[in-house]
């Protein structure tokens, strides 16, 4: 399938744009969340729209690179490459695996909203798993249920947002590998 084909310059460029977009969205989200005293771990997951876009338009390889770039760059920006880094890596990796599984195994029975919700829930599951391991307190796993409720809500919202983003910015399959046609200015304007 197209998805597993080698990475073209166009894909690489788009990947770079998406990586920076996800880092910026993550930063903006931090600013928004700082305004309200939410329980720890509850997040909007704005950057998830970028990962969704990547899964649906760039394929598996690029999505894996995207989340690695996002987590590493965010880690550098926050100056914390220890605990918080492992924690977000755990969430991002598990979330991506879950989303790819659901998307590819469901054969179009599950839309991007369902994929997004699964991603959001497993992002939290991954984070709690890493946190429990780091703190060696398995008792912390109960917190998954609190986060699951918020993840279903935010996952639905980011899924609907991702749907619109893909509808607006999607470039048809045929153009993607043969001729690198316009569409790049569009991506620029998204930023």
């Amino acid at each position: 399938m197209n998805q597993k084909s080698k990475i073209t310059t166009q894909k690489l460029t788009r990947l770079a744009l998406l990586a920076s977009a996800s880092v910026v969205l993550g930063y903006i989200e931090g600013l928004i969340c700082a305004l309200m005293p939410l329980p720890p771990g509850i997040k909007l997951g704005l950057a998830n729209t970028v990962v969704l876009y990547s899964i649906y338009t760039l394929g598996i390889a690029c999505s894996i690179m995207l989340i690695i770039l996002k987590v590493v760059l965010t880690g550098f920006m926050s100056g914390n490459l220890a605990a918080a880094f492992l924690y977000s890596m755990g969430g991002a990796v598990l979330s991506l695996i879950a989303m790819l599984l659901v998307k590819n195994l469901s054969r179009d029975q599950v839309s991007i909203v369902g994929v997004s919700v699964v991603g959001a829930v497993f992002h939290n599951v991954g984070q709690i798993l890493v946190a429990s391991l780091l703190l060696q307190t398995p008792g912390l796993m109960f917190y998954v249920f609190v986060l699951m409720i918020s993840a279903v809500i935010t996952g639905t919202l980011t899924g609907l947002a991702g749907k619109q983003v893909i509808r607006t910015l999607h470039i048809p399959e045929d153009n993607r590998h043969k001729k690198s046609k316009p569409s790049l200015p569009q991506e620029g304007s998204k930023q």
Binding site: S111, G114, V144, F145, V146, M148, I149, A151, T156
Partner: peptide, 24 residues
């Protein structure tokens, strides 16, 4: 949204609520 999306959302919500009750 498709039917399966609604199922996924409902399952997660059910698991969360049952889990929270069990924790209590």
């Amino acid at each position: 949204m498709k039917k399966r999306d609604v199922i996924i959302i409902s399952v997660f919500l059910a698991v969360a609520i049952i889990g929270l009750i069990a924790v209590k």
